[in-house]
């Protein structure tokens, strides 16, 4: 069983939901990436999505765009993001790490090289935003052969047929994009998300994690009542951005994640 599957299974047995923070590798600088990953785990992260910065993040809102630009300016690359995972694994062998990014850095490295390095480093899943399943069948198969989960997105606009196609291609979990828009948008309709989850569950045995508009404990809790996992990205990056110095950044990130953890672990009816 993959580390991601084991994590969801363990949580399921406890009746808990996965808390999945997203962190842009290299933001705010190279040296804080791995320490921040550990901070997130200490304060309740079950899985970490590590964003590989890209010059043209088409699906991202302004917050992650800014973070990506700063990370690239700091010298973050796909190679270094993989190295960060390897370093994280020196002291953490239980928390799954998913690399999330865009296709071109992977194509530039060559996907066989990428997969070999990711496997060596202890990467558990890969989510490539602009690789829909039909454009990456070989890549997804090669990932699976290396015991790395190819993770795919589903959107509110995905048709029933599409839902089944994506569900058949994905492993680890399905990432449900909670709104029609870019990351960090402020228009999340938690009731609409909850209403959509049963149709997804009917098409897949995979856990369903929800992201793109979750900003606080209240929305995390409402999403958590319906989904298996909650992904939080832009809001976390904003908190890192706002911190005056490194200790404050770790403290604020920990406090924020802790508040989400507490909310998620409350009985599911409590959100109503």
């Amino acid at each position: 069983m993959s580390r991601i599957a084991a994590t969801f299974e363990h949580l399921r047995q406890q009746g808990r939901r996965a808390l999945i923070p997203f962190l842009t590798a290299g933001f705010p600088d190279l040296e804080h990436t791995v320490p921040l990953m550990h901070t997130l785990v200490e304060h309740g992260a079950d899985i970490i999505e590590l964003g590989v910065p890209c010059s043209d993040p088409m699906a991202d809102g302004p917050v992650i765009q800014r973070a990506s630009e700063q990370a690239i300016a700091c010298g973050m690359t796909l190679r270094r993001a993989i190295d960060s995972v390897a370093q994280f694994r020196w002291t953490n062998t239980h928390t799954p790490v998913v690399l999330m990014g865009y296709a071109n850095p992977i194509e530039a490295m060559g996907y066989p090289t990428f997969i070999a390095r990711a496997q060596d480093a202890g990467v558990d899943g890969v989510l490539t935003v602009d690789y829909p399943p039909q454009e990456c069948t070989e890549f997804a198969a090669a990932l699976a052969a290396a015991e790395i989960d190819p993770i795919f997105l589903l959107a509110p606009t995905s048709t029933e047929t599409r839902l089944r196609e994506v569900a058949a291609a994905g492993r680890g979990y399905l990432y449900y994009v909670s709104l029609v828009g870019v990351t960090g948008a402020a228009t999340l309709d938690t009731a609409a998300v909850a209403a959509r989850i049963p149709a997804i569950r009917a098409a897949t045995g995979l856990p369903v994690a929800v992201g793109f508009g979750v900003r606080d404990a209240a929305s995390a809790q409402k999403i958590g009542a319906a989904a298996d996992g909650v992904i939080i990205g832009s809001r976390l990056i904003e908190i890192l951005e706002a911190a005056s110095d490194a200790p404050e950044m770790h403290r604020a990130a920990g406090e924020f994640l802790g508040s989400l953890r507490t909310a998620l672990d409350q009985p599911h009816g409590a959100a109503q």
Binding site: M58, A59, A103, V129, D130, Y131, P132, Q134, E135, F152, L153, L154, A155, T157, S158, T159, R162, V166, V177, V180, G181
Partner: peptide, 14 residues
């Protein structure tokens, strides 16, 4: 060529 976009655009492109 092809369709290398996020899932959020797939339905619109179809």
């Amino acid at each position: 060529g092809g369709v290398f976009v996020s899932e959020t655009l797939i339905a619109a492109l179809s």
